[in-house]
Design a protein around this nucleic acid. Sequence first.
DNA 1: CCTATCTTGAACTGATCGTTCCAAGATGTG
DNA 2: CACATCTTGGAACGATCAGTTCAAGATAGG
Lengths: 196, 196
Amino acid sequence: MAGRKQFDVDAALDAAMTRFWRAGHAATSVDDLCRVTGLNRSSLYSTFGGKDALFLRCLDRYATRYGEKYDAALSCAASDPLAAVRAFFQVTLDRIADPALPDGCLIAQSALAIPVLTEDVAARAKDALGAQRKRLRAALKASRLADQHAEDFAEHAAAVNQSLAVMSRGGASPAQLRAIVGVTVEALSHALPTHT
Amino acid sequence: MAGRKQFDVDAALDAAMTRFWRAGHAATSVDDLCRVTGLNRSSLYSTFGGKDALFLRCLDRYATRYGEKYDAALSCAASDPLAAVRAFFQVTLDRIADPALPDGCLIAQSALAIPVLTEDVAARAKDALGAQRKRLRAALKASRLADQHAEDFAEHAAAVNQSLAVMSRGGASPAQLRAIVGVTVEALSHALPTHT
DNA sequence: CCTATCTTGAACTGATCGTTCCAAGATGTG
DNA sequence: CACATCTTGGAACGATCAGTTCAAGATAGG
């Protein structure tokens, strides 16, 4: 209980997460992490344990933070699945449009990097993507969609959500991103039995 | 005209392309490229000029090779847009299912890496993604779809195609990938005026 | 055969990689 | 104050990074 930390651990995690998010795991060096967090190597290693351990913390942080937002958006899926899916995509569109945050998506980037990640890091990235699919599957199964349609549509929606990361990095405008999800939302509206 | 090359340039390009495709630009070292191509540094540098120059060659090679397949698939868009879009996605699904090739997609991976790529390499990655969008836009505008719907759907289809790269790396099964494109194809079939 | 030209292998450059280590400073307890 | 514990700055580690250099080997034109 002596020698108190001279920095805010949460703020450091946010800075590290943002860096991984923007540059990816491979293109982020420990020096980069020290620079963006303001820590030196000793503090970074003693607090977080190394690059991969810190990356895992950041991945979990990212998955938890936005997972909660996605869950909140989908909470009305049973009563109004169309509004729920619309709100789901809006979480991503808002995040991409936020100038204080990177575009892209840490989970999408990590998923594509799986072949060059450590086994445990790769497993966690896969889990994060799986959580997203599970979230959508549960929400849509609670709607009046037939089970098979619900599962298919959940896979589709999860994929379209990841595609926004790629397209935003590729220079797609907010209007173009809206068009991408618009087709998906339209498809759901036609698939819902309430649609006459 | 003296001292003939001891290797096949096309084979070396294929090997390098496959490596970049699987591991991405940042996680691929020149040593890796030497190993997979069988070349030593001298031959690699004198023939291709360096890592970034070789990466550009591989990006162009990838974009051309699969661009032609996408164009062929979309060639019947005016007469049968539904079959054209189906064939378009089938190009990607077949490529992912091919055990001799990596899953994922070099263009998607490069697009996500744009923030850490050299300016000219980033521009080329963006161009490759733009070519894909242009391809789909032209094909769908030739169909009986209203112009605005054609543009929106083109953006959507390009995005869904990129999403397959992310989802395949994340462990999605071929059936799940088919479900993803199935929703999109179904949406197009409902949007076409021929649909009764 | 001779020589100019090209290719190839391997050693080498300085920079950067992730990680470890240690001494100096700061803090809480006795 | 004294001592044990923790944090911090910075140097240092061997490994690997992208890229260069050079001499030896191979080939074509004369």
